[in-house]
Amino acid sequence: MLLPYLEDYWADTVQQRGVHPLDTIGYPVNAPLTCRPDWRVEGQKPGTSLERLQTDALDAFGLSYGIANCIYGVQLLFSEDMAKAFARAINSWMAAEWLAKEPRLRASIVVPTQSPEFAAEEIDYWAQDKRFVQVLMIVMDEMPLGRRNYWPIYEAAQRHGLPVGIHAGSAYKNPVTPVGWPSYLVEDYCAQSLAFQSMTTSLICEGVFQKFRDLKVVFLESGVTWLPAHLWRLTKFWRGMRSEIPWVTEPPWEIARRHIRLSAQPLDGPGDAETIETIIEHLRSEDMLLFATDYPHWQYDGLAALPSGLSDGLIRKMMIDNPRATYSRL
């Protein structure tokens, strides 16, 4: 599918060396979470049918815009050059096969994080196309995402007014848990929200938001309910150890509320509305959550992409106001 979009040298390489597709072990095609049963298309990989995306997601939820995030194994590659070539191919494919065919769709720019310099070039290239509305990274890359190594990516994103979306996923260059490789997919997926905790710590402690004051980071498929308690812990430790990171001059929870946004699917709350209401209170912000279907992943059934327990006002903010405030191009 990507071959026509790869430069000749890389298209030849793929064929001559028998390069496998870059699908990762993170979302096995037939695993329950990867695609909702009623969203599956016989004989097709989930998320490859534009027509079904139109009927199952855009039409069914009545969406004005849908932001497409292509999670493909570009970040897993070890060669910077190969990653650059595949990122360019993915983005070209996205523009030609999806954005050109469906006016409600917007997309994220896949970047070769192996080389922040190449990544910034990729952002500069696609930023001219206003249908690309954010930069896309994955939560478990080679290094924690706050590290200065990655700052050229944030510099480019801020310069173009693009938020940086950080999606669940691993480059598998480190064990997915901090205590080693697990046995099961269910653990791999569960551990994604732990990595989001670690990256919240990293982005804030390294001073990314002190340096890039206009930057917004959007956590995608991160889970939500872990955030309040994590910020309590982070802020407590900052009080005790802020001498180590003197550039962080305000409590981490304030920085998070200003700069971090989260897609609200999955939310990872219990079923009851009362507890959800309490969790939302713990967040102390109605600006952070963004509506998401997580199509075609199987997080919920029917149209229940919103948990019960949310006020009408918050739902409006999640579906309209917060996305508009986050994505300047919508």
Binding site: V139, M140, D141, E142, M143, P144, L145, G146, R147, S170, K173, N174, P175, V176, T177, P178, V179, G180, P182, S183, E187, C190, A191, L194, A195, Q197, S198, M199, T201, S202, C205, E206, H230, R233, L234, F237, W238, M241, E244, I245
Partner: peptide, 30 residues
């Protein structure tokens, strides 16, 4: 031997300390 985050080694002691919560979550999950 594994980094204290699923995405590599952080820069600061502060991050390592906060990371102990992610380690406990990971082992409890296991």
């Amino acid at each position: 031997g594994a980094p204290v985050s699923g995405g590599g080694w952080p820069s600061y002691y502060l991050e390592e300390m906060i990371g102990h919560a992610q380690c406990q979550q990971a082992l409890l999950m296991s």
